[in-house]
Design a protein around this nucleic acid. Structure first.
Length: 264
DNA sequence: TACATATGATCAT
DNA sequence: TGATCCTATGTAA
């Protein structure tokens, strides 16, 4: 579900399904009626993802901005189109393809200045060609907050959520409570590279599975972080050193770590 | 079948 | 700090 990889994968999929086509657009739920009407019938010219945001650009320089938040989800129907449920904020499509958006935090009509503002408040996105590690690293050097908190700040790095932060810190051997500006240059660089690799795998597999397939344990029970190193694995043995994984609250969010592989 | 919990971010208090 | 958006999943019963 929605960390940055989800939005980039959606952009790719929706681009392939609907890019360049004249789009039908409506808001069965009623909370996006005006915006849906504005883009109805227009050609979908491009789709961009920035961190956890996605933008659908239509002819005439208008865009639909969507942020899924915690609950938001897109559902594709093809070729059969069910009647929209009561919570379908935006229904759009072309030909035999119909997409429903439900539960999003944001679904609104934007122009170029809004997008400019968004980009100005987001840090570099490791999934984008224009994402620069140097920006991330120099921003970290100004932070005296724990690195675990810094990684969730979208102004520092765009697209990282609670799962990727825990997994990347484990893979880099960095304790979440260490101060961001106290990491070595090599550690900061390694964090960026690791996050980019994990996010890319997320786009490819369309899910967050940070443990490579060959290391996955088929005998492990379902759920409970089966495809992960530390996230949602508190009490279970570390895959590397067998020390029990621990969990605590960092700010308002749960964080998970191996106390031995990630020394403070 | 019911319930607790969740990958996010904003806004009110 | 807490409420909110209001869906999906895993777990308990």
């Amino acid at each position: 579900m929605p960390e940055g990889h989800t939005l980039h994968r959606l952009a790719r999929d929706h681009r392939a399904l609907l890019g360049g086509l004249a789009i039908r657009s409506s808001s069965p739920q009623g909370r996006f009626v005006e915006g849906a009407r504005v883009v109805d019938g227009r050609t979908l010219e491009r789709i961009d993802a920035y961190g956890k945001h996605i933008l659908y650009w239509f002819e005439g320089g208008v865009a639909v901005h969507v942020h899924l938040g915690l609950y938001g989800i897109f559902t594709t129907h093809r070729p059969l189109v069910p009647p929209p449920g009561p919570n379908v904020r935006w229904r759009f499509g072309a030909g035999e393809v119909t997409v429903d958006l439900v539960g999003a935090t944001a679904c609104e009509l934007w122009g170029p200045p809004d997008v400019k503002r968004l980009r100005a408040r987001l840090g570099p996105d490791p999934l984008r060609r224009d994402g620069r590690a140097e920006r991330f690293i120099s921003a970290l050097d100004t932070r005296r907050t724990p690195i675990g908190a810094a990684l969730l700040d979208q102004a520092l790095i765009a697209g990282v959520g609670n799962v990727f932060r825990a997994e990347a810190l484990f893979l880099c051997g960095v304790h979440p409570d260490r101060q961001a500006n106290a990491l070595t240059d090599a550690e900061q660089r390694q964090l960026w590279d690791t996050l980019r690799a994990l996010l890319r795998r997320g786009v490819r597999e369309n899910r967050i599975a940070t443990v490579p397939p060959r290391e996955r344990d088929r005998h492990e029970p379902e759920g409970r972080g089966r495809h992960r190193y530390v996230y949602h694995r508190s009490g279970l043995p570390c895959r590397v050193c067998a020390t029990p994984i621990v969990e605590w609250m960092l700010g308002a969010r749960r964080i998970f770590a191996c106390p031995r592989c990630q020394p403070h």
